[in-house]
Write a protein that binds this DNA or RNA. Structure first.
Lengths: 146, 146
DNA sequence: CTTTACTACTTAACATGTTTAGTAAATTGT
DNA sequence: ACAATTTACTAAACATGTTAAGTAGTAAAG
C-alpha cells in the first residue's frame, strides 16, 4: 500500500514510537533481569518502593504503570519470595501498605552497576543533552490532559 | 526512603518514563478501541499492514513490537474475523504472507477521525514543535545499538 | 548429494494485561 | 443515625507477553 492515506506513518505515531523506543531500551535490561529471576514488572515495583518508602497499592499501580488486578497477583508472589512486606492500613483499613524488605533492596543494590552501565551505553551514543531533552519532553507528555 | 541512593529517580529512568508517557497517550485510544471491539495490538497490526502492504509475519512482529507466538494467536482470530488474509509464501514456503482486507481497511477509515482528534488534542497542549522534537528523539533512541 | 545448520513459524505453559464483577471499609447526603 | 455512594482492593475470565521446545522448509558445508 505505502500510501499513508489513512493515518500517519507508524514511525511518527506517538504510541508506536514510544513502544519501539522502549523495546530498544528494555532489551538489555530484560537480559539482566532474566539472570536474577525477576520480571520487568517486579523490577519496577522494587524501584518505586525503594524511592517512595511504604505506600499503598494504588500508589504503586500508578507509579509503576500496573493495574491493580495485576499488582494483587504480583505482590502475592513477591511477599512469598520475601522481596516486599505488606500490612493493613492503620487508620484506613481498606488500604494495604507495602514496603520493600532488606532482601528486596539487596536485589536493587546488586544490579545497580549493570543498570547504570546500560544507561551509560545509551547516553554515550545519544549524548546526555538529548537524553535530558527527551526525558523533559516525556514528563511533559505525561502531564497532558486527555 | 526518598534517598535516590541506589538508582535514578524513576521519573528520570527511560524505561518507566517511556511507559508512563505511553499510558497517557494510549488512554483515549484504548477508549476508542473498546468501542469497536479491537485490542491495541490488533490496531497496531492493521496500521502496519495498511502502511506496508503484504508482508511476512516476522516483519509485522518487528514493526508492531509483538513476539511471534503472540502474533500467531492474534492473526488467527483476525483472519477468522475477516480483517486480514494469509497465504503461504510462493518462493519460500516457510513464510506466511499477510495483508489487510477491505474490511480491515474500513475499520481504519472509520476510526481515522477519532485517532486524529486524539493526536490533535495532545498537539494543542504540547505544541507541534515539541511533538516533532520528541518523535525525532524517539526515532534516534530506537536506532541505538545496545 | 547429503548432512548440518538455520529460518519462519507453531505449540504449550505460565506470567501479566485487561475488563467485569464482587467485597469490605470509609465517606457523603439527608 | 442511616441509606447511598465512593474507595481500595480481590476474584475470575479471557487476551496477550514471554520463554522453551518442536516442526517444516531452506540454505550451507562437506
Amino acid at each position: 500500500m505505502n500510501r499513508q492515506s489513512h493515518t500517519t506513518r507508524t514511525s511518527r505515531a506517538l504510541p508506536i514510537a514510544l513502544l519501539r523506543a522502549r523495546e530498544t531500551v528494555m532489551a538489555p535490561i530484560r537480559d539482566m533481569l532474566q539472570g536474577i529471576q525477576l520480571t520487568e514488572q517486579k523490577w519496577r515495583i522494587l524501584r518505586v518502593l525503594d524511592e517512595m518508602g511504604e505506600v499503598e497499592q494504588s500508589t504503586i499501580a500508578n507509579e509503576a504503570c500496573l493495574l491493580l488486578p495485576s499488582l494483587t497477583r504480583i505482590l502475592r508472589t513477591m511477599e512469598t519470595d520475601g522481596q516486599i512486606s505488606r500490612r493493613q492500613g492503620s487508620t484506613d483499613k481498606r488500604r494495604t501498605m507495602v514496603k520493600i524488605t532488606d532482601e528486596g533492596r539487596q536485589i536493587l543494590e546488586e544490579n545497580l552497576a549493570t543498570s547504570l552501565a546500560i544507561h551509560n551505553t545509551i547516553e554515550a551514543q545519544m549524548g546526555q543533552e538529548k537524553i535530558d531533552n527527551l526525558l523533559d519532553l516525556l514528563e511533559e507528555l505525561q502531564a497532558v490532559k486527555v
